[in-house]
Design a protein around this nucleic acid. Structure first.
Length: 443
RNA sequence: CGGGGCGUAGCGCAGUCUGGUAGCGCAUCUGGUUUGGGACCAGAGGGUCGCGUGUUCGAAUCACGCCGCCCCGACCA
């Protein structure tokens, strides 16, 4: 992408309303524009990150056997009356009516709707286990939206729903998602710690929140520090083995959110040196809730014994749009964002320090084309800005790898290779810098 | 939903107390000089002062009402 052909409205000054670092950087980097309390337009740069996060979620869901569909944002109140939640869900739910005065709502979640899909088509245990998910916009009319996209009213969420013949199978489905989530967040370059959580209005008796530790986190969390650096299951993990031992191993150490915190147990189970109390951002939440929806909504299948049974369900959420903010909270410095390469809006950039110098421009063009040919998602800054402004912008938007080309270096036959995460700034021959970039990305 | 604050050019702000017809920095546009860390000079454009009602000869400024946004607390992916 040539910067002269892109839309990147960066701000030199911080909008006054942005108080936390991720919100400020997202506005300054031209990723989002606020349209109202908790409602945002996703500008091209922010949308790129959003799409990359979505893609990682899709790949990891697929690996764990979940199937993508897409349900609507607007739902009929009828389904919610069936489950009893139309009245139970408070003012958080945006209720609207259509021209015929029918009660509708903008979905805050999709248990009812997916249960309706399920009961329409699935009649036999042979079609189980089944896990259906979608990545769709939700609306929750929060009393007080804040923290930019981390606590918006409109937000993009991956929500998945598992269906199983009995409780044992349902727990295996829960464990599969538990492991899939660890892999998912790990690929995004963040350390998410699963913590025992309150089940809230969704209900159920088994629930974990996936928490990123960050100073600006919304809630207090307590865990064994050994959990933070526990490696994820990994890409060759067998999701179809019995996952109970794996789950038990990963939940043996203490980890709880504020609501579930038991100070006595924490002190008893965790050596003092490993007792970590911190702030956390919730980026995922999984629940097992049995037949809470299948029973009132009459979603049942015939089992091997010929008897009908209500299907056992669980639900699994990932705050996709919230992750943008959370990742930035965990990856930034005073100059801007430091994207993990897996979610960076651009993996690398070529910076032309003298756009009106033929030799410099030719070298930039060669580097740009070279990276494109290698399949690198590369931004080429071919604008007439001054060097300082260009470099500051690249740091602000957090491009992981830069090839900086100017007349001085070029006369010596070198260009500059810089990494955003710090450390590396070296003078290299142009071809070497290109190779080095590709190697860093594709390793 | 309780408490507090703010709304003036795209962004950041001054002007409001003490009423006299709107200003600064950045950004934008034109011309020129510049160009390895957010350039300089000269010129230019851009404002229903959140909305409404009222007071007044006169309202960004005073009064009342409304709307919007932010912050702190109680609640949530």
């Amino acid at each position: 992408m040539r910067l002269t052909r892109f839309f990147l409205p960066v701000l030199k000054e911080s909008p006054a309303d942005a108080h936390i670092v991720s919100h400020r950087l997202m506005l300054r980097a031209g990723m989002v524009k606020q349209n109202g309390a908790g409602i945002y337009t996703w500008l091209p740069l922010g949308l790129r990150v959003l799409k990359k996060i979505e893609q990682i979620v899709r790949e990891e869901q697929a690996r764990a056997g979940a199937i993508e569909l897409l349900m609507p944002t607007i739902q009929s109140a009828d389904l919610w009356r069936e489950s009893g939640r139309y009245d139970a869900y408070g003012k958080e739910m945006l209720r609207i009516s259509d021209r015929h005065d029918r009660d509708m709502l903008y979905g805050p979640t999709n248990e009812e709707m997916v249960t309706d899909v399920f009961r329409t088509y699935v009649k036999s245990y042979k079609q189980l286990p089944l896990n259906l998910y979608h990545i769709q916009w939700k609306f929750r009319d929060e009393v007080r939206p804040r923290f930019g996209v981390m606590r918006g009213r409109e937000f993009l969420m991956k929500d998945g729903y598992s269906f199983d013949i009995d409780a044992d199978a349902a727990r295996q489905s829960y464990y599969r998602m538990f492991c899939a989530y660890l892999n998912t967040f790990s690929r995004m370059g963040i350390k998410a710690v699963p913590m025992r959580a309150d089940t809230g209005p969704i209900g159920g008796d088994l629930s974990h929140e996936f928490i990123i530790l960050a100073a600006t986190g919304e809630s207090a969390v307590y865990c064994d520090s050994d959990l933070v650096d526990m490696p994820p299951p990994g890409s060759d993990f067998d999701f179809w083995a019995d996952l109970e031992p794996e789950f038990n191993r990963r939940t043996a150490l203490y980890a709880a959110t504020e609501e579930m915190h038991d100070a006595e147990r924490f002190e008893r189970d965790t050596p003092e040196a490993r007792r970590l109390s911190a702030r956390g951002i919730e980026v995922g939440h999984i629940f097992y809730f049995g037949d809470k929806y299948s029973r009132p909504m009459n979603a049942s299948v015939t089992g091997p014994d010929g008897r009908e049974a209500f299907v056992e369900m669980g639900s699994y959420g990932i705050g996709v749009s919230r992750l943008l903010g959370a990742i930035i909270e965990a990856n930034h410095d005073d100059k801007g964002v430091i994207w993990p390469t897996s979610v960076a809006p651009f993996e690398a950039a070529v910076v032309n320090l003298r756009h009106d110098d033929a030799d410099v421009s030719a070298a930039c063009e060669a580097a740009y084309q070279g990276l494109l040919r290698a399949g690198v998602d590369v931004l080429y800054d071919d604008t007439a800005e001054r060097p300082g402004a260009k470099l500051s912008t690249m740091e602000l938007i957090g491009v992981p790898y830069l090839i900086v080309i100017g007349p001085k270096g070029l006369k010596q036959g070198t260009v500059e290779f810089k990494t955003r995460s710090g450390g590396v700034t070296v003078e290299l021959a142009p071809e070497v810098a290109i190779e080095r970039t590709i190697e860093a990305l594709r390793g």
